[in-house]
Nucleic acid binder design. Structure first.
Lengths: 202, 202
DNA sequence: TGCATTGATGACAATGTGTCATAATCAGAT
DNA sequence: ATCTGATTATGACACATTGTCATCAATGCA
């Protein structure tokens, strides 16, 4: 988390800084990014950067969370829109991610270097801003009647699986530079396989 | 790929070097590792490192591939053992990965920082050493009669899904420091969900 | 006005990276 | 045994980056 000093900054300076940070992390992935570039580009002295952020990671995750949480289009909203249908909501969500234009480069770098920590940051999508006790909140919105579950644990695993496969499809899109159509096509195939099961029903 | 010079090295020196590299990447993940540490620990001059490897990544992937390809226990062998049953083979494979002791720390660092590139390196598990045209090779070993597929593309997606979920489970094991039992338990639940489908059959 | 708190600044030590000119070694030909 | 070209070894060096810290400036409030 950025330090208080950062939040106290006048809007325009804050924005200048955010832009510089975004720019650098759009250029290269987290571990290739350099603070020197950021301060150069934001025209602030080096010491100031450390007045605002703990380190590179701190700045990175601040931006990432911003993009993820950003608009109200959080996952709960999608679930409501689709009357609790998990699969339809995910397909909607997938399209939303891959059509994002403003931060493509940033997201590309993030997805192609999706470490466990970064992936967890993305999991915030499934959290409500107000409520950290996300699983309850979200699971209550899911129409479980058309899911193959016998308990809460199953639901948890189902969400885990869907989330993982989704991320993987986004990564694939970036890595292989698939068109939106291709990526969506693949994703829908996989969602259907997940729905119906990979094994044959006799 | 290491340079020829590396392969020309006398066995003992090569081994000393490999150990030093492993040690450093067991200490910290790829991007925190330092070549300085490696040469210090291997007691070779800095210049020599660059005689053998392109850079840090090069050394890292050399070791990683070594661990992955290593023993003949490749995926094809597992498939044969299980008469082509993809799920049983994967569960066997999963256990094999999490019971690995010798390179735990190295693998932990690798899994918790599983970028697209690293993940691809793991995909080598599904490749035959001799044959690069892996998909053909492997898919011919899979008993597709109990899979829910209508064409080759489906099979590809199924393998993609299973691979992704498997990796994710290994990552989870390391991240949350699950016991082998817990990790295996979770994995089996998810494999069954995948088999039978996440959606309800009416 | 004066004091305290907060913020700004950039020089600096520490560490790392990759290169390169030079030296050592080796292997084969004579 | 000696010469020679090719390969390998070596470590100093230029350059980049990081995080810190002593110092200075600004702000606000009594």
């Amino acid at each position: 988390m950025p330090k208080i000093t950062f939040y106290n900054l006048p809007e325009d300076k804050k924005e200048k800084l955010i832009n510089a940070v975004k720019k650098e992390f759009s250029r290269v992935p987290l571990y290739d990014a350099s603070i020197s570039n950021i301060v150069r580009s934001a025209r602030i002295p080096r010491g100031s950067f450390y007045q605002y952020f703990e380190d590179k990671e701190d700045a990175f995750f601040f931006i990432l969370n911003g993009i993820v949480i950003n608009n109200n289009n959080n996952f709960a909203a999608l679930l409501r829109k689709h009357n609790g249908d998990l699969f339809d909501s995910m397909i909607d969500f997938f399209q939303y991610i891959i059509k994002e234009e403003e931060n493509v480069q940033f997201l590309k770098n993030a997805f192609l270097n999706m470490t466990y920590k970064i992936e967890n940051s993305f999991a915030n999508i499934f959290r409500n801003r107000e409520n950290n006790d996300n699983f309850r909140e979200i699971s209550s919105l899911i129409n479980t009647s058309n899911l193959n579950i016998s308990n809460d644990q199953d639901l948890f695993h189902i969400m885990q699986i869907i989330f993982t496969v989704t991320i993987r499809n986004v990564v694939e899109k970036f890595a292989k530079e698939l068109s939106k159509q291709e990526a969506l096509g693949n994703y829908i195939i996989e969602m259907n396989l997940l729905k119906n099961g990979l094994a044959n029903k006799k």
